[in-house]
Amino acid sequence: MMYLRVLGSAAGGGFPQWNCNCPQCKGLRDGSLHARARTQSSIAVSANGLDWLLINASPDILTQIRDNPVLQPARARRDSGIAAVLLMDAQIDHVTGLLMLRERGTPLPLLATPQVLSDIGSGFPITQILSHYCGVQTHALQCDGRAFAVPGLPDITLHAVALDSKPPPYSPFRGSPRPGDNIGLVLANPANGRRVFYAPGLGQMTPQLLDLMAGCDVVLVDGTFWHMDEMQRLGLSSKTALDMGHLPQSGAGGMLEHLARLPARVRKVLIHINNTNPILNEDSPERAELTAAGVEVAHDGMEILF
């Protein structure tokens, strides 16, 4: 059995966002909204329940470790269940937590595409900073369809898929995205053949990607925005969901339309949910629409076995 634990299910800023007084954040703070608080998105995967692959290191990693005791097995005076880290992209909310792991006693195995390693080696030089602390052992991922293993975690098989999304605003390639700036990940259990597809940032669906998802048992995908113009409606930004590299759930060509094409046996879960998204309100019509469509909303602490 493989274990997947959702450490954080929110988009950047978390929920409630520290400086936001939109109806969602305000309602959660004053208790008028039926919703759960969420930290910034990250998952962890293990084959034995002791040694874990951390997928994205959010700024909330210390809180997430505290809230998930399985990540601290306490086998020695200094210990961690985090055996390696894999980055899906170079976004601030997915890489900043690496700095919190600097007290590690040995170099941190870090898996990412060459594009992501370039961004966090220069534009936001986390790997350079960590070289003065624990250091990192980088492993470049190729989005060529070939399966690969994680150093120290041989029982987990993965392969990476290049997605259409955007690198972070600090990247010199923000305006000209490259394949490898953002990936989807297939996690497979070699013992039973079950597969999970993980993609917290997804700007466009393709027939090939939909076919890949149809062959998985669970899809854990981008749930950032409900509306294309969600941020504009609230006066929080002039950008659309696609401008920010995310496919909205609703509307023609939205995530829900694509998920409806998947076989009924596929478990469908949304993650990386922005604080403005009405699906966070468990009493909302949007949440009811998801339930009717058989689509779940990830929450911190959710566990998926495969």
Rank of each mutant, 00 (worst) to 15 (best):
R174C: 10
H246S: 13
N182H: 04
C216E: 06
L236W: 09
A191M: 15
R178F: 00
P190Q: 03
M228E: 15
A162C: 03
V218N: 06
A199T: 00
S237D: 13
D164A: 15
L187G: 05
A241R: 00
G245Q: 03
L234D: 15
P200Y: 13
S237G: 01
K239W: 14
G201M: 10
W226R: 00
R233I: 08
H227Q: 15
N192Y: 08
P190T: 02
C216Y: 12
D217N: 12
A160L: 06
P167D: 08
V219M: 11
G201I: 10
A199F: 00
G235I: 09
H227C: 10
N182D: 07
T224D: 05
F173H: 12
G245L: 05
Q208H: 09
D217T: 06
I183R: 02
S237P: 02
D222E: 14
N189H: 12
D181L: 05
M231I: 03
R194L: 05
G245R: 02
A214F: 01
S176W: 05
L209T: 08
R194Q: 14
Y170V: 08
G215R: 15
A241P: 07
L202F: 09
P207I: 01
P169K: 03
R233W: 11
G180A: 00
I183G: 03
D164P: 00
F225K: 13
P169A: 04
A241I: 01
Q208D: 15
G180P: 09
Y198P: 07
T206S: 15
S165W: 03
A241H: 04
P179S: 06
P172W: 07
P172N: 08
N192T: 10
T206D: 03
F197Y: 13
Q204F: 08
H159W: 11
P190Y: 00
V161Q: 08
D243M: 04
A188Y: 01
P177Q: 07
P200F: 14
S176Y: 04
